[in-house]
Design a binder for these strands. Structure first.
Lengths: 342, 342
DNA sequence: TTGTATGCGTTATCAT
DNA sequence: ATGATAACGCATACAA
């Protein structure tokens, strides 16, 4: 150990000091601070000026201890290193969540899980009463934190995809419907041999996109034209497009399970001398920063990431007020951003 | 008001319960929990099993109230909406900070400032004793939060660029040196007419990059070949390159103050029929996701964003232990990622 | 080595 | 409408 910082030593004004300065009791001061009824106008005034005079700020630790509420809500981001830096939706979800919580006077606290150790510490943090509720994005199946949250019964909402647990609230998009819609539009441009580069088949989102693709194709569906990779990455797109080209040189349409994948696929197509969209039409998923950077700009499914965040926050707030039970999914509409790649 | 959630009502086991279950006193239990000396092995054992038995978890609010420490450190992200989503460094800083704090068993708590209201609430949050220290990225000059932090004397470190306040710790890169280095390398490729698209001249980082550019050019510096725009964006690159081409059709080298700017400039150059790097060499700054997406890949300055985050965390930790005074800057080395655009 | 007692700053329940 | 007082769960100085 060493010298504690000067900050830690400092004592700031308490209700006690305010009471002394105003000549009223601590009870009355507390009532004024919490805006309760049954306080005279004059009492309120003198308390207010006493507060200003002594520079009082409420001590949250004490208040939390007493009320068992922290007025803070945690947002747990559980992404592997690389994806975290690349995923365009995380930032938007964050901002959306923050806007709703901010309006309700809750403090958003984001917690990053980047290691086993983090996982444990975050679980501890949650149990410590630092937060009244929690939003979890991109939970894995079999996630220890997810299970801890359920076990504790803390108000929560998952965003991204439904977890493998019952009795939990979640918000997401309808991946089946969205995939089917954009594939259908791709078909309407006259494509005959359409393939898919799928990804993350260990998650509902990944599986559902394949299901939608298949539904759109109907009888024309050919399993040989679907390849899949674990990660929604540019590299997966490169690999996948090569395989697809190998299997079906006459391919004229591609549905990529993410924009990053589409970007990789497009570079391979270009290198193979195919022109887009003349020879091959391609569509993606996410409407991320990749989409506009592609040449030509990519047609893609827009995820309402901000709304996802807002909705998740709202659902936690509702549970907090006992207005809602912690169960069931909410699905938000996606829209297709139709550009020049198909 | 409405029905409070069931969670809020729940009471979990306390030290009291553990004491009862183990037949020891609350004091001894507390000592075991905090790993203090002077506890017998048998006492420790029975406390441990009692903890497991009753499912005890420490109440952080109570502990904070008593110790005046929260073992949490805040990371304040103060970026305008759009930049927040685009800036590639923020995620890396976040991860770097988290790794150091995690190892020291501190919980990182990220706070987003996205509105005036947020600003106030975050200040309140800091005063509430939720965090023992704070890291602030991309603070503005005249930032109310920055001033609040200084006024409270809470251990802090700024990352990104030095604030306009004295007696504060900050970490950053040497923008002058980095800009000079990459411009020099650009000149060594034989360029004669080299321009710059500058940005954010209201911040040190922006001004320093111009200074470095100028230093590298020496007598060859021509003010007419420097254009500037408020935002480090793709659009600034498009605009800037058009102006530069207008003023100096014979331009053969460009230093863009960010990768996004470089990307915009490259698209304009291509549209104007200039080949890169044959006709014009171009370099950027940041080594962001843009750099690899450019055609050809962009030569650029790599910011050690992860290290910046780690260093900032370390400096806060040092202040917390009284090991360091809260003042002075730390500058980290940049490296140049030399690719094909120049 | 262990137990006892006190206080951290609030809110909330009583009287008044 | 206001004032006294008892918790909240913990750490710690002191006594044993």
């Amino acid at each position: 150990m060493s010298v504690p910082s000067e900050f830690a030593r400092r004592r700031s004004a308490t209700i006690h000091d305010v009471a002394a300065a105003s000549g009223l009791s601590r009870g009355t001061v507390s009532r004024v601070i919490n805006g309760e009824r049954y306080v005279s106008a004059e009492a309120r005034d003198s308390v207010m000026s006493a507060i200003a005079e002594v520079g009082y700020v409420p001590n949250t630790a004490a208040r939390n201890l007493k009320t068992k509420r922290s007025h803070a809500i945690g947002l747990i981001v559980h992404e592997p290193h690389s994806l975290f830096l690349e995923d365009p939706n995380i930032g938007a979800i964050l901002l959306g969540t923050n806007s709703v919580l901010s309006a309700a006077d809750y403090q958003l606290v984001s917690l990053i899980v980047d290691s086993e150790r983090d996982s444990d510490r975050v679980a501890e943090y949650l149990r410590g009463g630092f937060v009244d509720g929690v939003i979890i994005i991109s939970a894995r199946e079999n996630d220890p934190i997810g299970r801890a949250v359920v076990a504790m019964g803390i108000p929560a909402a998952f965003v991204g995809h439904p977890p493998d647990i019952d009795g939990i609230a979640y918000v997401g998009i309808d991946n089946v419907q969205a995939a089917e819609a954009i594939t259908t539009r791709l078909l309407h441009t006259g494509r005959r041999r359409v393939g898919m580069i799928a990804s993350a088949l260990d998650r509902d989102s990944g599986r559902d996109r394949v299901a939608g693709f298949r539904a759109a194709l109907g009888d024309a569906f050919d399993p040989a034209l679907v390849v899949d990779y674990p990660l929604y990455s540019y590299d997966s797109g490169v690999e996948g497009m090569r395989r697809l080209l190998d299997r079906a040189p006459d391919i004229d349409g591609v549905f990529a399970a993410s924009d990053a994948i589409a970007a990789g696929a497009m570079d391979v197509l270009r290198a193979a001398g195919r022109s887009i969209p003349k020879d091959v039409g391609i569509v993606g998923f996410d409407d991320s920063a990749w989409a506009l950077r592609c040449q030509p700009p990519l047609s893609t499914v827009r995820q309402p990431a901000g709304d996802l965040g807002r909705m998740a926050a709202q659902r936690v707030l509702d549970q907090l007020d006992g207005r809602e039970s912690a169960t069931g999914g909410t699905f938000l509409e996606t829209v297709i951003a139709w550009r020049e790649s198909a």
